[in-house]
Design a protein around this nucleic acid. Structure first.
Length: 466
RNA sequence: GGCGGCAUAGCCAAGCGGUAAGGCACGGGUCUGCAACACCCUUACCACCGGUUCGAUUCCGGUUGCCGCCUCCA
């Protein structure tokens, strides 16, 4: 089977075929670092981290690049407000980004380029665009001549004339067309700036991604991804810049994730309902957040609400419990059981079902449903009087494999050894044998107060942290 | 005005031509000394109106209701 993915460019699911067999060049637009990231910023990071993991699972070598926009108007403003150097501020929030995103189970990209490290490349790129007649300089600003690029609008599927009609762009006499956009902005008094052929200034927003993608991945890449709202104008402009400069296709596949709403409302500054990952992960297990987001297809909107996250947490708990119970059973004497092959075949079928789900445009909602099915199978197997350690092992491997692809590895059961708890459990076992249930319940309550939940099974008592 | 998305059980969410996956919550059983975990059972006129089809939740047209982009917001 091959991977099918939805390409914004064609508005269809397409079979994924990379430029180079076995390798994927992927670029994901990263954050502007002037604050902690909010959960809306986190969605593409999680979604495309999962895409990457699955591609790797499928045997691809993925060169995954995600940038930091570390100079722009908002950053300059934030730095001024906080009376902090731009470089200090961005460094601070870049580190915070790594912490937040790591907590959410996302791997580091192959490269995390920053705009300020690529100014020279950007200047060179802009000069190329000017030479080719796609850009012009006015008073120290450089603009992209949108009308010059034939394919403008092909990603957002708008004709350039429609865009012009709808454009609520303030009259800017400097630009020769309202749809033209800045490649280079002349510096205002006291602003951070770099030298250029057009005087002191800094890059416009869109140019950075064109340049860094090209520098790190080449003229044509396989997948370019980001939030839905970046489709226009950001990605549209990137295409215009890159394809005008190189004469080649910029990216073969464009992927865009849907929005996050808060309590059914758009997350916005005016509503004051921004949820920062930095804050929320103190209240909600970040793994639950990831699981919650992956329970909806990446192109659909996700509604973030307390009760929905809680029910996701319960679901994840169910999976974790099944996994723990398999581990627990494995520590007991391995019985020989019949029908082992049948169970193993069943497990393999689930793995195949998982792959089928993920092959279909990374349908994590269905993939998670498969993990639930696997949990059910495991629970049913644990009902058996005799279990085979090979089957238990195979279940555990399957769980590790699938949850690993989702970026949701299980907690290691290292803390399963606790002498004090064990001796209390032994004492309780004795008490129960002597039908001293009040003492038994006392011990159970005592442990519960410490956050340890006991579960009696036919094979003995197991415990977990509740 | 242009482009696009969504409407499926109490809630969340897949499916997208052959009479509806999964999860959470609820109810009833089983297991248990009691619990917990778990298992079993039960629960859907797929927004509305037309059309195409042997057959539509799934395709086409329309209606209604939400939502997004067209503003350097993921």
């Amino acid at each position: 089977m091959s991977i099918q993915l939805y390409n914004t460019l064609t508005r269809k699911k397409e079979r994924f075929v990379p430029l180079e067999e076995g390798k994927v060049k992927m670029y994901v637009c990263g954050p502007t670092v002037y604050n902690y990231i909010h959960i809306g910023n986190a969605r593409p990071v999680i979604a495309f981290d999962t895409v990457r993991r699955y591609l790797e699972y499928r045997g691809y070598e993925v060169n995954y690049v995600s940038n930091f926009t570390d100079v722009d108007d908002k950053i300059i403003k934030a730095a001024n407000d906080l009376n902090e150097e731009v470089g200090e501020l961005t460094e601070r929030f870049i580190q915070a980004y790594f912490e937040d995103v790591h907590a959410l189970g996302c791997e580091k990209a192959t490269a995390h380029p920053r705009v300020t490290e690529h100014i020279e490349d950007i200047v060179k790129f802009i000069r190329l665009l000017i030479e080719k007649g796609y850009a012009y300089e006015t008073n120290g600003d450089v603009y992209y001549r949108t009308r010059e690029f034939d394919g403008y609008g092909k990603l957002s599927h708008q004709s350039i004339d429609e865009l012009k009609v709808g454009a609520r762009i303030e009259e800017n006499v400097i630009k020769s067309d309202p749809l033209d956009f800045a490649l280079w902005k002349t510096a205002k008094e006291g602003e951070v700036s770099w030298d250029s052929p057009w005087g002191k200034g800094r890059p416009g927003w869109h140019i950075e991604c064109s340049v860094m993608a090209r520098e790190l991945l080449g003229d044509t890449i396989d997948i370019h991804a980001g939030g839905q709202d970046l489709t226009f104008p950001h990605h549209e402009n990137e295409i215009a810049q890159s394809e005008a400069a190189t004469g080649k296709t910029f990216a073969n596949y464009w992927m865009h994730n849907g929005y996050i709403n808060i309590d059914n409302e758009k997350m916005s500054k005016s509503l004051g309902n921004f949820v920062l990952v930095h804050d929320i992960r103190k209240q909600i297990n970040p793994k639950v957040l990831r699981f919650f987001m992956l329970s909806v297809h990446y192109r659909h909107p996700v509604n973030f609400a307390q009760e929905l996250v809680e029910s996701a947490a319960n679901g994840l708990e169910r999976i974790q419990t099944a996994y723990n119970n398999l581990q627990h059973r494995l520590t007991l004497s391995a019985d020989l059981a019949e029908d082992s092959q049948q169970w193993i075949t069943g497990i393999d079928e689930q793995i195949t079902a998982f792959e089928t789900a993920m092959d279909d445009d990374f349908n994590t909602a269905n993939a998670i449903a498969v993990v639930f099915e696997l949990s059910k199978q495991a629970n049913i197997y644990l009902l058996e009087k005799n279990t085979d350690s090979c089957v238990l092992q195979r279940f555990i491997e399957a769980f590790d494999l699938l949850m690993g692809v989702l970026g949701l590895p299980f907690e290691t059961a290292a803390e399963l050894v606790d002498d004090e708890v064990d001796s209390l459990i032994q004492e309780r076992l004795e008490a129960r044998k002597n039908r001293d249930f009040s003492r038994a319940d006392e011990i159970r309550d005592e442990l519960k107060a410490k956050g340890i939940v006991l579960e009696d099974t036919a094979q003995g008592t197991r415990w977990k942290r509740g």
